[in-house]
């Protein structure tokens, strides 16, 4: 098939950037979306132009590197699919495709389709873990977890940290990302001691990083390649409110009263 691509090109963070039009022929339906971009880039390099920079790695939908907004949808039109797993059989001959980076105040653009998602890491560093020293764990079967809780925790744990939720949210909120981690750890017995402190620390850090608040648009769930449910946001909010009223104020771990 023949396509017309409109791709966001931006040389560096400080540049203005804009869409550039690229006609592309000989695209086959079995190609992945990123392979289609590879083909374009090969052509550009041979012509002496700079290729389109985009982040990618595993190309199996699990590393969370890739992602772009395709025709207005993060990761493109197929539900529950990362950009690398989207195949060209979902497009038609003579389609026009608009490709732009995941935009958000908290995700500055580094080049073309590559954005800086470091804010996600900093939110995890603020509390997205169960603190356990290497070597100090009890026997694994000494902690029993109901299959229901374990399965729910796993649903949340599937988050790949790609940032599609943020890019799709009108508020630029990271609530789905943050709550997936809070839910995973909060559902497990191992995560109980730090549960409320964790909710407070991560949600406050997200705010500090420039992510917006959640007002239940549900766009995040719709584009999430791992189909993470917004139920987790409700659970996280519950923990957050409990924490704000009862225990730790601030991150110092001291009781408020």
């Amino acid at each position: 098939m023949k396509l017309t691509l409109h791709i966001w090109r931006q040389k560096a963070r400080a540049d203005k950037g804009g869409f550039v039009r690229y006609p592309l022929a000989d695209v086959t339906e079995h190609m992945s979306f990123l392979e289609m971009l590879d083909v374009l880039n090969e052509e550009l390099v041979v012509k002496g132009e700079e290729p389109v920079h985009f982040e990618h790695d595993c190309r199996e939908g699990i590393c969370g590197c890739c992602g772009a907004v395709v025709n207005g949808q993060a990761h493109g039109p197929q539900k529950g699919t990362t950009l690398c797993q989207l195949h060209m059989r979902h497009f038609h001959d003579n389609d026009e495709i608009w490709i732009e980076p995941f935009r958000s105040k908290a995700f500055p653009i580094l080049k073309d389709l590559i954005v800086d998602r470091g804010a996600f890491d900093r939110v995890i560093q603020a509390g997205g873990f169960i603190a356990v020293r290497t070597g100090s764990a009890p026997d694994a079967n000494g902690i029993t977890v109901s299959k229901e809780a374990s399965d729910l925790a796993m649903d949340a744990a599937e988050c790949i940290g790609c940032g599609a939720c943020v890019a799709s949210c009108p508020n630029g909120s990271a609530s789905l990302f943050v709550s997936a981690k809070l839910s995973q750890l909060g559902l497990l017995p191992q995560g109980q001691p730090e549960r409320l402190k964790r909710a407070l620390a991560m949600i406050r850090k997200a705010e500090e990083e420039g992510f917006g608040y959640c007002s239940n648009y549900g766009e995040c769930e719709a584009v999430c390649p791992k189909r993470i449910s917004i139920h987790h946001i409700a659970r996280a909010n519950c923990d957050y409110h409990k924490a704000s009223f009862t225990v730790w104020q601030g991150t110092g771990g001291k009781a408020a009263r």
Binding site: F129, A137, A140, A157, Q190
Partner: peptide, 8 residues
């Protein structure tokens, strides 16, 4: 170790 970290 992994179970203690919350690996589901």
């Amino acid at each position: 170790q992994c179970v203690a970290q919350g690996v589901p």
